[in-house]
């Protein structure tokens, strides 16, 4: 993959690339987690990053959102290298990216309404109370949980919490969604419901997505393209069907 500091106008695919990860390197102490990782996410595309536990999948998306600082390489998000960004610029960029945490990360001292209002308090300060309320109710309705608006997160089941967390990450209508193991810890039925919901909101909100998962049902349902992360590198890249037919042992083991 040819990588430059900025997008080349001659690159026919560049204008469609919303995230470009180039030669990404991240290590913790002496342990190298990501080593020369390269991948592009195109507009409207859903990319699943598949890998074993501890292979660095979550580290990858935390680097994209700026929660972790890469030790090397570049990450271009919506045309800008995040390494060059000031704090305020990064905050602005984050308003265009939704992030669904593995643990949901709902604020447990706040109601569902307050959880959804929280991202708006920073980015949409000019909205009136009724407009904020309309946005909250509409987004909650999109995940089928409008009736929970005044409940506390602890009163909801794991699947419902995941839906609320998804609603919170969608409230600012992001262009990019990052999902960190969205079905982990859920029973198979609820996991399928969440996978279906992800595909629905992707269509409705026209988002480009990176989904971290090792739940093969979720991978099959949500991924247009799958990147297999092995030993810190993008070991294989292709559609579900292409990778399923692969004879490579390292790839095959995920599909058995």
């Amino acid at each position: 993959m040819a990588v430059t500091d900025t997008y080349s106008p001659d690159d026919s695919t560049a204008e469609n690339v919303v995230i470009r990860i180039a030669h990404l390197r991240k290590q913790f102490g002496t342990r190298v987690v990501l080593n020369d990782f390269n991948v592009d996410l195109h507009k409207g595309e859903s990319l699943v990053v598949l890998g074993r536990s501890g292979s660095g999948k979550s580290v990858l998306i935390k680097c994209i959102i700026g929660l972790l600082k890469p030790d090397g390489g570049d990450i271009f998000v919506l045309g800008k290298n995040i390494a060059d960004m000031e704090h305020a610029e990064m905050d602005q960029l984050r308003s265009r990216i939704g992030f669904l945490f593995q643990s949901n990360a709902l604020y447990d001292s706040m109601t569902i309404r307050e959880n959804l209002e929280f991202p708006m308090r920073h980015h949409l300060r000019n909205l009136s109370n009724s407009e904020v309320n309309d946005m909250v109710m509409k987004t909650l309705a999109d995940v089928g949980l409008a009736h929970t608006v005044d409940m506390m997160p602890s009163e909801l089941s794991g699947g419902m919490q995941k839906r609320v967390a998804l609603a919170r990450s969608l409230i600012l209508h992001p262009e990019i969604m990052l999902y960190d193991e969205p079905t982990t810890g859920l029973d198979p039925v609820t996991g399928r419901e969440i996978s279906t919901l992800i595909t629905e909101v992707q269509k409705k909100y026209s988002t480009s997505s990176i989904i971290i998962s090792h739940d093969m049902h979720c991978v099959k349902m949500t991924g247009d393209k799958i990147a297999v992360l092995i030993e810190g590198k993008c070991y294989a890249l292709g559609t579900y069907e292409e990778l399923e037919r692969s004879t490579d042992h390292n790839v095959k083991q995920f599909f058995e």
Partner: peptide, 20 residues
């Protein structure tokens, strides 16, 4: 305890991601 719990459940990260 409160901030520690928020830290381990990624609530502090969620705040940062939401621009706060």
């Amino acid at each position: 305890a409160e901030l520690g719990s928020m830290k381990v459940t990624e609530q502090i990260d969620a705040m940062e991601v939401s621009g706060t």
